[in-house]
Design a protein around this nucleic acid. Structure first.
Lengths: 118, 118
DNA sequence: CCAATGATTCGATAAATATCGAAATATCGA
DNA sequence: TCGATATTTCGATATTTATCGAATCATTGG
C-alpha cells in the first residue's frame, strides 16, 4: 500500500461520523448496511451520509452494491488490512503481528440484525 | 483509548508531511530528532514544521524535550500502540494480536517471525 | 550584555472539509 | 404509468487546515 493511499484511508477514518460508520460496517460483516440505515443510526441527513460514504468508498475502505432500492455498503477488510500492515511496518518500528492479526469479517458476532449504537 | 482521541491521532497521521515526520521519528527511536532537522529532511520551512509538530504532539503521538537550543521530538510508541489497539479492536472485527504486535522503538528490525512473548 | 542560533507564534491567505435542504435520479409495487 | 421509497447530486455556506514570511521567544557562547 502506498503512502498516498494510506493518507486517504487515514483521512477517511479521521472523522467522527465516518469512523462510527466504519465501525458499524465492520460489525455488520459481509451483509453490510444500507445508506439510509447508516444515516438513521448515526443521526445525519441522507445527503450528509452520502458525502461521508463517498469519502470512505473513495479511500477504498468500503464497497457498495445495489439491492433493490437500497445501496448496501460493506467494510473492505482487505483494505483495512493493508492499512494496518502499512502502519505496523512503517509507524510501529516494523514489529509485525505474525499472521494472526488479519482483519476479518467479525468472528464473534452471531446476529448482525441487532442495533447497537451507544 | 477514546474515539475522540483516536480521531485526533488519525487526523494527525492523515497528512503527507506529518506521516513522513512520524516515520522518521519511529526510525530514530528514543533518541529522537530536532525540529530543525525534521524541517530540513522533509523540506518545509521551520514555521510549517512547527505547525505539524504541534498537531502530532496535540494528538499525543510525539513527545518533546529541550536539549540546549534544540527541541527534540520522539515518537510515542505507547500512543501508537493504543491507536493500533483501537483499530484492531473496533475496525478489524476484533481480531487481536496478543502482545507480539506492540509498537517498539525499532531495535534494528528484529526477527519478523517472532511469536507471542515467551 | 550581545550577537548568533533554534524554535515557536503571529498574521494573512488559499485550499479543503463538513453540513444540509432542495432537486434530480433510480427502483419497486400496484 | 404513477406514486412512493431510497439515494445521490447540486448549491450555498461555515469551518477547519495548510502554508509561509516576519516577528518574537529561549538558549548558548564570548
Amino acid at each position: 500500500m502506498e503512502a498516498d493511499h494510506v493518507i486517504r484511508a487515514l483521512a477517511a477514518l479521521a472523522q467522527e461520523h465516518r469512523l462510527a460508520v466504519f465501525r458499524l460496517l465492520v460489525q455488520a460483516g459481509a451483509e453490510g448496511l444500507a445508506a439510509g440505515v447508516l444515516a438513521e443510526r448515526i443521526g445525519v441527513p441522507p445527503s450528509s451520509m452520502s458525502f461521508h460514504l463517498t469519502q470512505l468508498a473513495n479511500a477504498g475502505l468500503v464497497t457498495q452494491r445495489r439491492e433493490s432500492r437500497s445501496i448496501i455498503y460493506s467494510a473492505d477488510y482487505a483494505a483495512m488490512n493493508g492499512l494496518m500492515g502499512y502502519l505496523t511496518e512503517n509507524c510501529c518500528g516494523g514489529v509485525p503481528c505474525g499472521d494472526a492479526g488479519a482483519c476479518q469479517p467479525d468472528p464473534a458476532r452471531p446476529d448482525p440484525a441487532r442495533k447497537a449504537n451507544s
